[in-house]
């Protein structure tokens, strides 16, 4: 089973695209979602994203991540609902009201965040992390240390998640009941665990930095990578589609 945002081998169209194409498409797709408030267009983008995930057999992990995004976007939607009075009044509040416009804005926010996130998730699932970092260095001329920092950050997310799981298991074995009580109790129990997590994170980061140094990290340049990342006609078509979508939402109100 693959971990969080971890590459899953495959031979789909998305797998075969140039890594830079995938990054450009995902970023333009996300910008497009943020440039429009048309709920129908956003729903269309969301469906496109789901179809893309299904086309490379990544529907299940993407739906799992969408759940996490939903939790975050619902918080934003509730804030919008309570602080953006617009449209016909539905509920009076001491500081304003919740209107039909507020509900539409909240729903739009949820759909927008979900739609924008899918291609970004997919990029990680269908591209090796080394290809992502090497291609941005080779093609986009991004300094290697920035690409490495980004790749390391993503790489360490599942590592730290595993560490937290181990720490929680160790404390559970000592009698700490994480599954008892409400959210306040859980937070109270988890706060002390941030200390060992922080200590282990610093130790791991330090080890990784030393390992990189001794392997000649500072000697690496754009020319160091052996693999080439040529663009094909399909890459150009995909990028054109992304640009066309963005232009469409800017020009069409």
């Amino acid at each position: 089973m693959n971990g969080f945002l971890e590459y899953v081998p495959g031979d789909s169209l998305l797998h075969r695209l140039n890594p830079v194409t995938k990054i450009v498409f995902a970023v333009l797709f996300a910008i497009t979602c943020f440039c429009t408030s048309n709920i129908f267009f956003l729903c269309g983008m969301l469906i496109c994203g789901i179809i893309m995930a299904a086309s490379c057999q990544m529907l299940r992990p993407v739906l799992g991540l969408m759940k996490a995004v939903l939790a975050f976007s619902v918080i934003l939607a509730v804030l919008l609902l309570l602080t953006s009075p617009s449209g016909d009044v539905l509920v009076e509040l001491p500081w304003g009201y919740i209107g039909t416009g507020s509900i539409m804005a909240a729903v739009t926010t949820i759909v927008r965040l979900e739609a924008a996130a899918i291609p970004l998730f997919l990029t990680f699932y269908v591209t090796k992390m080394t290809d992502l970092s090497n291609s941005v260095v080779k093609v986009l001329h991004v300094p290697y240390k920035y690409a490495f920092t980004f790749a390391s950050t993503v790489h360490f997310i599942p590592v730290f998640m595993n560490d937290m799981k181990s720490i929680m298991e160790a404390q559970t074995a000592r009698g700490v009941e994480f599954d008892q009580g409400g959210i306040v109790n859980k937070i109270r129990l988890m706060v002390p665990l941030c200390v060992p997590l922080l200590v282990s994170s610093v130790r791991k980061t330090n080890s990784a930095a030393i390992a990189a140094e001794v392997r000649g990290f500072n000697l690496r340049t754009r020319e160091s990578g052996y693999k080439q990342y040529p663009f094909s006609a399909v890459d150009l078509v995909v990028m054109l589609i992304a640009v066309a979508l963005l232009v469409a939402v800017i020009l069409v109100p």
Binding site: S166, I167, A170, A173, G175, D179, P196, V199, S200
Partner: peptide, 24 residues
């Protein structure tokens, strides 16, 4: 059995002490 009941009966030393240590 609840986890805490088992913890009273069965102590567990993990391979990595850093998973276990969490106090100042």
């Amino acid at each position: 059995l609840k986890t805490s009941q088992i913890a009273r009966q069965v102590g567990f030393l993990f391979q990595n002490p850093d998973s276990q240590i969490c106090s100042n």
